[in-house]
Simulated scan of single mutants.
Amino acid sequence: MTETQANTVAALAGKPRFLALDVFRGATIFLMILVNTSGPGAEPYPQLVHAKWFGFTLADLVFPTFLFAMGNAMSFAFRKPVATAPFLARLFRRGAIIFVLGYLMYWFPFVEHGANGWELKPFALTRVPGVLQRLALCYVLAGLMIRWLKPRQLLLAGVAMLLGYWTILLAFSPAGMAFDKYANIGTQIDLWLLGPGHLYKKDAGFDPEGLLGTLPATVNVIAGYLAGLAIVQGGELRRTVGRMALVGVVLVLAGLAWSPWFPIAKKLWTGSYVLLTVGLDLLLLGAAIWLIEIAGFKRGTRFFTILGRNPLAIYLFSELFVTVLNMIPAGAENGTYEAAGVDIFQAIAPGSLGSLLCAFAYTMLCWAVGWWMDRKGWILKA
């Protein structure tokens, strides 16, 4: 361990984890479930739907914010000095578990009703990339870089990864097709390595969590880690929050300025998208720290910390249980969740509001599961 890394560890070990960081992560999980489970029967509000390709909505902020929050947590999880072999074993073990959980989540419920009754869902048609899979790959890659690079080197590595990803898209995609959904080099790599059967079924040969996109997505994790270091090493908290806000504004403007050449696109995870989302996350985290840690406004924070303490378990439950609900027949609808959205929430408030109320009700159900687990002291750790 270098002297710089030792100083970093000492600084982190001497300060407690800020409540604002757990609230920030919990709020991200809340919004993630709300976006992922929009109520059926009507179109959701446009801001709660991912941009089709180029563009940006509130929904597009959720996933990079979770990566940013993960990096933030890593700045505390890695604060104790650990020998290289145990560190690598823990890093790869946790990454592998998260990856496998993500894969099994897409395979669930493992069976389907075919011509001969219930049959095992074929492995050849199971999606390999995914949200948790990308989290796992980014976690491992960022962890390796954090282990051996100083903060300034991490910053330079992040810049190199964004520029390198841009260069790869431009240099190895067919001429003029670098930002085409199906022709870009990232999609071609996924098709070559995995085949269309293992990719996202709704996009016909394109996967928004493809392998090449791991490079720029890891920058969101590194940014969260560096923000965590800045918080505990920055001295006076008001000054640190002010600097975070300034950097956040600069990054948002930089992302917008880059977008004419490298368009903002969540599904392609472009460099401009990374700068924009990191900038917004710095502003949001800075606001949370100011409100909770400086102004002392802590009322209601437990609502979000319940989600923030058990993010993996609550996310898995939210994805799996809605699948179970949709497997249970209910009247003329395809499943219980669809029936609830159409027959109950659309009757109460037709249109987008009903869709939002249905998603909110389901999100609160997931929160209740988190509350119950919190009372039992059950924490799912990979």
Rank of each mutant, 00 (worst) to 15 (best):
L31I: 06
P122V: 03
V250I: 14
E3I: 13
V219P: 04
L320C: 02
D190L: 04
G114L: 05
G39R: 14
F63D: 10
E43G: 10
R299W: 13
L215M: 03
V159P: 07
R134G: 10
L282K: 12
P64T: 13
T277E: 03
L251D: 08
T270D: 05
L365T: 11
V23L: 07
G242W: 15
V100G: 06
R239I: 07
A136T: 11
G370K: 10
G248S: 08
P16Q: 03
R302M: 00
A69P: 07
R90L: 01
G235C: 11
V322G: 00
K266A: 13
A382T: 09
F297Y: 10
V221Q: 14
E209M: 14
F68H: 08
W192Y: 12
P64G: 15
G242D: 11
V128W: 10
P109L: 01
M161T: 06
L357A: 11
P129C: 03
R238G: 15
K150Y: 08
R17W: 03
G377F: 04
Q133E: 13
N310R: 03
A13L: 12
A136P: 01
N7D: 14
W372F: 09
I289W: 13
E319S: 14
M32T: 04
L88Q: 03
Q233H: 14
G224R: 07
L253D: 06
V49M: 07
L226F: 12
L276M: 11
G71Q: 07
M105H: 00
L120R: 10
Q47V: 06
G235F: 13
P350S: 07
V111R: 12
F78G: 05
N326F: 02
C138E: 00
G95P: 03
V247A: 14
I314D: 02
D207T: 12
A257D: 09
Y315E: 07
A257Q: 06
F92W: 06
Y182H: 07
Y225V: 03
L21Q: 14
A142Y: 04
A160H: 04
A227P: 00
K181M: 14
L141C: 11
L21K: 07
A160L: 14
G341E: 04
F123D: 09
I294N: 06
V23F: 03
L156E: 05
V249F: 15
T28G: 13
L193T: 04
D374E: 15
G130N: 08
K267H: 02
D22N: 08
F108Q: 00
T214S: 14
P40W: 01
V131Y: 05
E119V: 09
L194K: 10
K202F: 02
A382I: 01
A6S: 08
G158R: 05
F76R: 15
K266H: 14
P263Y: 12
E3T: 08
L125F: 09
K150S: 12
R134Y: 08
A227L: 08
S259V: 04
A313V: 06
L253W: 06
L191I: 01
P263R: 06
A157C: 12
A330D: 00
V221P: 08
T126H: 01
G224C: 11
N184G: 04
L316I: 01
V100T: 09
Y106V: 00
A265S: 13
G95H: 09
V232G: 12
D203K: 02
I222H: 05
K181H: 14
V62P: 09
I264G: 09
Y45L: 09
R375V: 09
F206H: 00
F206D: 05
W258K: 05
A85L: 15
P350L: 13
G279Q: 02
